[in-house]
Amino acid sequence: MAVAVARSRRGLKRIVVGRAHSGPRGASRFVLGLLVLGIPLLLALAGPLLAGDAGPRGTSLTPGAGHVLGTDFTGRDVLREVLLGGRSVVTVAVAATALTYAVALPVGFVCALTRRAWLEEVLMRPLDVLLAVPSLLVVLLVATAVRPGPAGLAAVVALVAIPDAARIVRAAGAEAASRPAVEALRMQGEGWARLALGYVGRSVGRTLAADVGVRLTGAVYLVATAAFLGVGVAPDASDWAVMVDRNRTGLSVQPWAAVVPALLIVALTLGGNLLVDAALTRPHRTEKDR
């Protein structure tokens, strides 16, 4: 009887949620997210093919002077640097974010759904130790031992982001796991893996979608900081994040050198959030699970 009531309540809740998110609003948000995200991704993928050869350098941080977006801190054409600078930052940031959740999701869900306290302690306490170490210090410690390339830098950025992400997954998953519906599913013999991929995973979806944007932005700026210190990327590399960091001192005289790459980074994170949020709330998702 209790199982039937739980199923009925769960089904009624999904019907209501499905109706609330049905209609053109979800579709328009999906299209908007796709367009906003598509701009930086298109520039990152096709930009190097359109950049052309480097011309003579001009005066540092100068608007105009034959350059559509002016020059950067080394006198290079900003438009050309924008076309060249997306591939590295997008690749490293996206790879680092993907690696972060490849570890944080299983660890967080296991800790949220397990009833073995010792297992949770074994998984979370080492992450607490890593959480106490500043992320930039970890990057510098790794850089003293090896010289990480883009792949190594992505791995290091993921390493310092895993503790925060795992704790968020654990907290959100634990709240969902305490609901009567989960107890009813446990009584039916559902294991933690199916719960994580099913009811609990859907319940924490919006929280994780919001966190992805934070992780992606944090990865971008940690990569930029590491590049400024000569780790992973050269300090004068054609890279959006490096451009924001190195050209910000000239905002009052030549803002485009920092504003344009910053807007592209914002579009990357905003478009990703819109796209994921729209995908999570599209009507077919809720109707399918009724």
Rank of each mutant, 00 (worst) to 15 (best):
P56S: 13
R57C: 00
G58R: 05
T59D: 13
T59Q: 13
T59R: 13
A65F: 01
V68I: 13
L69D: 03
T71G: 04
F73T: 10
L79I: 01
R80P: 06
R80L: 04
R80T: 08
R80Y: 05
R80N: 07
R80Q: 15
V82N: 11
L83F: 11
L84N: 14
G86N: 08
R87F: 09
V90P: 12
V90E: 11
V90C: 11
V92G: 10
V92S: 10
T97F: 08
A98M: 14
A98R: 02
A98T: 15
Y101W: 15
Y101R: 09
L105V: 15
L105K: 04
L105I: 14
F109W: 05
F109H: 11
V110I: 15
V110H: 13
C111P: 01
L113K: 07
T114E: 09
R116Q: 11
A117S: 14
W118C: 00
E121M: 05
V122Q: 03
V122G: 05
V122L: 15
R125I: 03
R125F: 06
L127M: 12
D128W: 06
L130Y: 01
L131Y: 15
L136I: 15
L137N: 01
L140D: 03
T144A: 12
R147F: 00
R147P: 00
R147E: 14
P148C: 05
P150A: 13
G152D: 08
G152P: 09
